Amino acid sequence: MSHFWTNYHSHNYYCDGVESPEAQVQAAIQQGVQTFGFSSHCPVPFTNGWSMKRDRLDEYLSEARALKEKYRGSIELYVGLEIDYIPGVCGPADFADQLDYTIGSVHYLGTNWNGEPWEIDGATEGFMKGLVEVHDGDIEGVLRQYYALLRQMVQQDRPDVVGHLDKIKIHNIQGSLYDEESDWYKAEIDQTLDAIAEAGCIVEVNTRGVYKKTLDIYPSEAILKRMRERDIPIMINSDSHTPAEITLAFVDTAHQLRQIGYKMVRVLVQNEWKDIPFDKDGLSLGN
């Protein structure tokens, strides 16, 4: 019984990743990936250090589609974007008709001390400055806004995949800002998971927190257990920014998911979303 991996969350030099899309494809093949998706950060109408420039979008789409044809028979390739959900500014629906799939993520929450979009998954220094100067240190209020925005996204601008669900926890070093076991936090999670389940979105299990931050997968094991109770479909993604990261931490993550009770992952294969069995060695189409 042969095993393989898939990864639909990847970044290359069109945004804040390194190396070319073709270098990603070649590395994916070497790492036993059978289906791979390009998902550069979508263009946004303001300046930041990691999004694709608007004038490069057509080139990105064209190159990705050309690679689909070039490597047909060696690997299945799909063209996506990781799309920022910012109400009134941008969201998955703005790009969906040009793509094979969409990843919807919340990277910004309101505005910062300068009236600019406040990045909530960047450097902790900037996050703390916004928390203190704009939100008077009210981390509970910020988290409630964050999860409310995720709910709004899946209800009003549904992506195929929800990106790094609880990534805002990167600032909660050793529980210094909030307790993930507190009743109010678990209630926010439950409301958000209920909305995701109703919308029928896939939630990615993102391994970047493990290999890059030495933290945890996104979402946490506690959240994954609650997702399992709701039969929310998952996929395993690495959020790779270099070709070498495409399958990092997949084996341990797959084992962890099996321990939780997941037996299937939802993936885009043969141009359809399908549930495929997996174990710690990867996905399998065998019996």
Results as ranks from 00 to 15, higher is better:
D97I: 03
G137T: 12
R144A: 14
G163S: 11
G163E: 08
P159E: 08
Y85A: 10
Y108W: 14
V89P: 07
W118K: 00
D94P: 11
R151A: 04
Q152I: 03
L109T: 09
G122W: 01
Q152L: 06
G110R: 06
A148Y: 00
Q152F: 00
Q145C: 14
E140Q: 12
K167Q: 05
V132W: 13
V161T: 05
D121Y: 05
S105A: 15
I170D: 10
L150H: 07
V154G: 01
S105Y: 08
Y178T: 06
Y147A: 09
G110Y: 05
R158L: 07
I86H: 02
D100G: 14
Q98K: 09
G80R: 10
G91V: 09
K169I: 09
D157W: 01
C90Q: 12
V142I: 12
G110S: 14
P87E: 13
Q98M: 09
H171I: 10
G115M: 05
I120D: 05
P87Q: 12
S176E: 13
Y85Q: 02
Q174E: 15
D100P: 06
N114T: 06
Y101C: 11
P117Y: 09
D97W: 08
D157H: 05
G126Y: 12
Y147E: 06
A96W: 03
V162M: 01
K167D: 01
N172V: 14
Q145I: 07
G80K: 11
V106K: 05
D94S: 12
D84V: 10
M153G: 00
D121E: 11
A123F: 11
I86K: 01
R151T: 01
K169T: 06
L109F: 11
Y178L: 09
E119G: 13
V106D: 02
E125P: 06
E82D: 15
V161D: 07
I168P: 01
V134D: 00
D166H: 06
G104Y: 07
D160E: 08
V142L: 13
D100S: 15
A96C: 06
W118P: 00
N114G: 04
E116F: 09
W113Y: 11
E133Y: 15
Q152K: 15
D179N: 12
N172T: 05
W118V: 00
D166F: 00
G141N: 13
D84K: 09
T111R: 15
Q155M: 07
V106T: 03
